[in-house]
């Protein structure tokens, strides 16, 4: 049983090993790391939601080759990003730069968070209201009323106890 559970866990934990297998040669591990970073972070322009590493389309193949080429030519990260954005627009970046066209993408989560906080704050305020009222000191007449009620109660329970 334990072994079965372990096997189940391992299946759940195994990360999806997607991505295409291409053999690109790199001189250093940094170049290899940069290449993998780029193909994970750039979106396939032909696909709706796949990065370059996960896509088998012809254009992704070309773009991977281009990235490898640019890395081997010692182009900086910014140069590679600018090259891609100049051709495919902000769409190609999974984390697009902040500008007028992408503002809605960046700001919507923040706006929703603020809205949620506002709703939470309003709800919390409504719930806290009765408590606040009870904290106020009682007026003289209210105190008298309370006293009368308590006296009534006490005498009633005494009577009940006697019976």
């Amino acid at each position: 049983m334990r072994r079965l559970l372990l096997a189940g866990w391992l299946i759940l934990l195994s990360f999806s090993a997607h991505g295409v297998i291409e053999t690109y040669q790199f001189d250093t591990d940094v170049q290899r790391a940069r290449y993998h970073h780029f193909i994970e972070e750039l979106r396939c322009p032909k696909c709706q939601n796949q990065n370059l590493s996960g896509s088998d389309s012809a254009i992704s193949k070309d773009l991977r080759r281009q990235i490898h080429q640019m890395i081997m030519d010692d182009k900086s990260d910014i140069e590679i990003t600018q090259y891609m954005v100049a051709r495919y627009g902000d769409f190609i970046l999974y984390r697009p730069q902040f500008n007028a066209a992408t503002a809605v993408l960046w700001l919507t989560p923040l706006a929703l968070l603020l809205l949620g906080l506002l709703v939470w704050w309003r709800m919390a305020a409504t719930r806290a209201k009765p408590k606040l009222l009870s904290d106020q000191a009682l007026s003289v007449t209210e105190q008298q009323q309370l006293k009368d009620l308590l006296d009534e109660e006490n005498s009633a329970s005494k009577d009940g106890g006697n019976k």
Binding site: P45, K46, A58, I59, D62, L63, Q66, R87, Y88, G89
Partner: peptide, 9 residues
């Protein structure tokens, strides 16, 4: 040139 044009297909 397709790459420079931003051709996707």
């Amino acid at each position: 040139f397709g790459l420079d044009l931003g051709v996707t297909g």
